[in-house]
């Protein structure tokens, strides 16, 4: 390639367009990877220790109420243990953001008040204190000295 060709002004628009195309394709690729990661991250991790101790398996954390509330769902594995967990009104699980200095432990009303059946799903509704939790991020669920990390927030 000669100097003249390198500096050829007619070649610049082509290079600019190629650059734009490369950036766009990179953005698309990053988006695809990001989406894949996001989808992969939606699988809620499991803790055999927590499941054995509490009789439940956490299944979903979601921001609702236009950002002001959070729902925490869990599947009942052992009804007796789960009822004990459910009845522990003074010590609800703490949801701590892994993205910022924020958490919530403030359970609102509508706690299911009936006996829990194995295989059924129950839930708690939290206030999302100061917007601590946000969609597409991760939280740690803490209860009774045990933790479940990297739970995706929907």
């Amino acid at each position: 390639m000669s100097i003249n060709q390198h500096l050829n002004p007619r070649a610049w628009p082509v290079r600019i367009v190629l650059g734009v195309v490369v950036v766009a394709l990179l953005a698309l690729g990053a988006h695809t990877v990001w989406s894949d990661r996001s989808d992969a991250a939606r699988a809620v991790p499991q803790s055999t220790a927590m499941e054995s101790a509490l009789g439940i398996r956490f299944s979903r954390v979601a921001v609702v109420g236009d950002g002001g509330l959070v729902t925490l769902f869990y599947v009942v594995l052992d009804a007796e243990k789960a009822n004990t967990f459910q009845s522990d009104l003074k010590h609800p699980p703490v949801l701590t953001s892994e993205a910022r200095d924020g958490s919530t432990r403030r359970v609102s009303i509508m706690r299911p008040g009936h006996g829990l059946r194995p295989g059924s799903t129950a839930y708690l509704v939290y206030e999302n204190t100061a917007g601590a939790l946000r969609p597409n991020e991760l939280v740690t669920i803490s209860y009774g000295g045990m933790t479940l990390q990297h739970v995706p927030v929907l």
Binding site: P13, V14, I16, V17, V20, V21, V23, A24, L25, A27, L28, A30, H31, W34, S35, S38, P135, N136
Partner: peptide, 23 residues
């Protein structure tokens, strides 16, 4: 060149917009 540039920008913008929409 213009058409390719517009298409490329549309792809990139679409990708970003989709991402923003997800948030």
């Amino acid at each position: 060149i213009g058409a390719v540039a517009v298409a490329a920008l549309a792809i990139g913008a679409g990708a970003l917009a989709t991402r923003q929409g997800a948030v």
